[in-house]
């Protein structure tokens, strides 16, 4: 079964249409990347899936169920999002414990204490960080908290919006290893937005290249590694990344 199926998706902000006829499928357990430059509409696609960009037409279905346009509690249990900037995405006046317990309270799940412990352990955060505030954590630790928050409801699909681009290279390596391990251990499906092709090469199975709100090419990661992308624009992107490997 497809974890995510998107067909003919047009998303608009007010009068301006941002994406045009986006379509791709992500199989269950797969890790899929959306790449492209800023303004190509890749983050907008994630937002539409998450219910944060509400005016769209076309179809989005998650694990076989049609996605409605708004925020949907049942959907939230299936699919969670990790944002780019761990300095901005955590509430500055909530402790790690409060941040992680809140989704459980919203969804009326009991025994949150034990679950918080478990999730912190699985993202590699020591127990003593549980009652700290975000400003007492490093960038990498904060991104671990953000990932833990996304995982706490045991979703099956994670939307990752540039999860490592605000981090240093050595920290990026740790978070990438973590994401890879979590996917293996928990059978997660990833849809990741990034402009960093080497990261795609490390973490993903397939990728879609976007430009000006359209998907120009969907390729296997093997094609990326061997430099066999077909579309001229994807080849250009690959060339830039090979010349100046991004961190």
């Amino acid at each position: 079964m497809n974890a995510l199926a998107i067909d003919n998706l047009d998303i608009s902000y007010g009068d301006s249409k941002v994406t045009h006829g986006i379509g791709f499928n992500v199989a269950e357990g797969e890790s899929f990347a959306l790449v492209g430059e800023s303004g190509s509409g890749k983050t907008t696609v994630l937002k539409a899936i998450a219910g944060m960009a509400k005016s769209w037409t076309g179809s989005i279905s998650v694990f076989g169920e049609q996605r409605t346009h708004g925020i949907d509690r049942g959907f939230a249990r299936q699919c969670q999002m990790v944002f780019q900037d761990p300095y901005g995405s955590l509430h500055p006046r909530k402790t790690v414990d409060a941040t992680l317990s809140e989704p459980m309270a919203i969804h009326g799940m009991g025994d949150s204490g034990a679950r918080v412990d478990e999730v912190m352990q699985s993202v590699g955060l020591d127990r003593r960080f549980r009652f700290r505030f975000p400003h007492q954590l490093s960038g990498g630790q904060r991104q671990r908290v953000a990932i833990a928050r996304a995982l706490i409801l045991k979703p099956r699909l994670l939307l990752l919006d540039e999860p490592t681009s605000a981090l240093d290279v050595s920290v990026q390596a740790e978070i990438l290893n973590l994401l890879k391990r979590l996917r293996r251990e928990q059978g997660l499906t990833y849809l990741m937005v990034t402009h960093n092709l080497p990261v795609v090469s490390f973490l993903c199975d397939r990728l879609a290249v976007m430009r000006h709100g359209r998907v120009v090419e969907i390729a296997d990661v093997g094609q990326l590694k061997r430099g066999e992308m077909q579309d001229p624009y994807s080849r250009e992107l690959t060339r830039f990344s090979a010349a100046h490997p991004q961190t």
Binding site: V169, A173, P198, S201, F202, L224, S241, A242, T247
Partner: peptide, 10 residues
């Protein structure tokens, strides 16, 4: 620690 475009490390 920098991933490469032809990454093969696990």
């Amino acid at each position: 620690s920098i991933p490469r475009i032809d990454e093969s490390r696990d």
